[in-house]
């Protein structure tokens, strides 16, 4: 990371740095050793952080506010489970038996990529809020199909069957699940870091700042957005398949609801769309806050999301991490 490279980038995306990511990963890696008795909270929080990171590739980098990511998460969860259930897997593709979850996850990611391609191709022609509206509609239609048709167990959902061991590890051991969730977050971080240095990353920034200008530079905005959508979808589906293993039983009513999509998006935005680690910070902050104040706000746990998102749009468009950074650069500690 040379100084010249940093200054040549637009302000918004310059201040992700590898050190902060390393510190974050270190903290997350230490968690199970310190809080070994609160692993359920740890796993679900890491998954949310990973979802927020994945969302941000589309929502932050490509500037396309999706409120339909629950559908992509659901594709990951459903695919890995359906392929692992002996009675269902062979019926699908004439397979001899159940498919191991790691292959199932890959299939889910491929399906999510496919969906993102079609979904994006249809709706990226729409500008601004229209894309957001369409993302809600698409996700809700998918939700209704899953609830009403029998291929995914309908409204009663699915149970995860016994799974083969991965390198001798029991996938239902919470420590192993924590490791999977950690790997997922680490992967989203890695992808985001790589994206930042890639042509795609530059092109996306250009499109986000000025779509017509980017087109004049020979960048095809729809293609770039599609690439971001596919990347975002693939990662979200991966997280979704880990989530399914963690839950072991799920229903469309817990996985495919609009509030989950909204929660993922808001975590990322509150944390900061334009910094690399912002979504993780947002997810960690909101999850810890929700847990600590669960008795105060249990009834209205999204209230804090509402207050924060309003505060962020009014006073800190770069999210909470933007606030720290601004102060940081003023103090000269950041560069």
């Amino acid at each position: 990371m040379t100084a010249a490279a940093v200054t040549s980038r637009p302000r918004a995306l310059t201040y992700g740095n590898v050190w902060l990511s390393a510190v974050l990963l270190g903290v997350m890696a230490l968690y199970p050793f310190v809080f070994g008795k609160s692993l359920n909270f740890g796993v679900s929080t890491l998954l949310l952080a990973g979802f927020a990171m994945s969302w941000n590739i589309l929502g932050g980098w490509a500037g396309q506010l999706s409120l339909g990511h629950a559908a992509l998460l659901g594709i990951g969860a459903y695919t890995v489970t359906l392929f692992a259930i002996p009675e269902r897997a062979p019926a699908w593709l004439g397979l001899a038996g159940p498919v191991a979850p790691w292959w199932g996850a890959l299939i889910g990611m491929a399906l999510a990529a496919l969906l993102a391609l079609v979904w994006g191709r249809l709706t990226f022609g729409l500008r601004g809020s229209y894309f957001t509206l369409s993302s809600i509609a698409v996700a809700l239609i998918i939700r209704l199909v899953v609830i009403n048709e029998d291929f995914g167990g309908g409204a009663e959902g699915l149970f995860m069957p016994d799974l083969p061991k991965l390198f001798g590890l029991d996938l239902f051991d919470r420590h192993v699940e924590y490791g999977l969730a950690f790997t997922f977050v680490a992967l989203t971080l890695l992808v985001t870091h790589l994206l930042r240095r890639s042509r795609l990353g530059y092109a996306l920034q250009a499109v986000r700042e000025d779509e017509d200008g980017a087109r004049a530079l020979g960048i095809d905005p729809t293609r770039m957005k599609l690439a971001a959508f596919v990347l975002s979808a693939v990662l979200t589906a991966l997280g979704g398949s880990i989530y399914a293993i963690y839950l072991q039983a799920f229903e469309p009513h817990t996985l495919l609801e609009l509030p989950l999509s909204v929660q993922i998006a808001l975590m990322a935005i509150i944390g900061g769309r334009s910094s690399i680690q912002g979504p993780i910070l947002g997810a960690l902050l909101l999850a810890v806050f929700g847990e600590v104040f669960r008795n105060v706000f249990a009834n209205a746990n999204l209230l804090i999301y509402g207050v924060l998102i309003l505060a962020v749009t009014l006073f800190a468009p770069d999210g909470l991490s933007g606030l720290f950074k601004r102060r940081g650069s003023k103090l000269g500690t950041n560069r």
Partner: peptide, 9 residues
Amino acid sequence: GITKPLSQY
């Protein structure tokens, strides 16, 4: 919906 994951856990 909540009881099923709980029973597995």
